[in-house]
């Protein structure tokens, strides 16, 4: 068995989790939600040996190309969504949307534009600052995925109580994700850039859009904490911030720049 076996198997398990979550959403039975969340966690466990094997094959942490980046997000996302289910009892709607986004990320790895080939990293990517930069940024981003799911669930919630709960969940997940994103995308990213390119910051499109994403999430937190924004206004800001994050992840590649040799 090689890493591809575990990667392919994990994708089908995540897909199964998504179907179960959809079923849970439609049937409104919490039992299916529980099965869906545990299936997602099993997907995480199944992908783990794949990740280790791929790492051994390439002799580095497998986060150095698009294929590895999107599957890494799904892997880390699966455990974060499961953690949120266990600690914050996220409802089926949030579980379904989060899983759908993670499956979407994973599906990108099957795109004909993305090569699943195992290749050792080019010299510039052989840095443990890069590993910290990517893994912390991704950890923050998966919390933002859950916050997006909660924000979307808010818009579809019919009762005031449910809306208040989704609003609170959006806030809490951003509150957890923001420090990780700050450390990963900005702090460790800047340090790696200094060692790799000689400059902390080059206003490269990926850097600029990471900053834009950070500014939106910082704005969201300040509006909550200081201006006491709650409800729809706050939710819209969270959705705009998430759109910036997705553009930073995928869209910026079309703008070129230094990060064109990097993971995404």
């Amino acid at each position: 068995m090689n890493s591809a076996f575990f990667y392919s198997g994990a994708f089908f398990i995540y897909l199964l989790a998504l179907i179960v979550e959809l079923f849970s959403l439609l049937s409104k039975k919490s039992f299916f939600h529980k099965i869906g969340m545990y299936t997602l966690f099993i997907g995480f466990l199944f992908q783990t040996p794949g990740l280790i094997l791929r790492g051994i094959e390439m002799n580095f942490i497998p986060i150095t190309n698009v294929y590895e980046a999107v599957t890494f997000v799904a892997w880390i996302g699966a455990v974060v969504v499961f953690y949120m289910y266990k600690t914050h009892k996220i409802p089926a709607s949030v579980g379904f949307i989060s899983t759908a986004v993670l499956v979407g990320f994973y599906a990108v790895s099957s795109s004909p534009l993305v090569s699943p080939e195992i290749a050792p990293p080019v010299p510039i990517l052989r840095s443990y600052w890069l590993v910290l930069h990517i893994s912390f940024a991704f950890l923050g981003e998966v919390f933002f995925i859950v916050s997006f799911a909660a924000a979307l669930a808010y818009l579809f919630s019919k009762t005031k109580e449910k809306r208040a709960r989704m609003d609170d969940l959006t806030y809490k997940t951003i509150l957890i994700g923001f420090p990780f994103f700050t450390l990963g995308a900005l702090v460790f990213g800047a340090i790696w850039a200094k060692f790799a390119w000689g400059r902390f910051w080059s206003w490269d499109p990926k850097e600029s859009w990471s900053l834009i994403t950070w500014l939106f999430y910082a704005g969201y937190l300040h509006s909550r904490y200081v201006l006491k924004w709650k409800g729809k206004k706050s939710i819209i800001l969270a959705l705009v911030a998430f759109a910036a994050m997705i553009f930073t992840f995928f869209g910026v590649d079309f703008l070129g720049g230094l990060h064109s040799t990097e993971v995404r």
Partner: peptide
């Protein structure tokens, strides 16, 4: 004013965003 901070954040994000395009 925190409102000024949010307006400035949006303006910086807008100028940087347009600049990257």
């Amino acid at each position: 004013s925190i409102k000024l901070a949010i307006v400035l954040m949006i303006l910086i994000a807008t100028v940087a965003g347009i600049g990257t395009l």
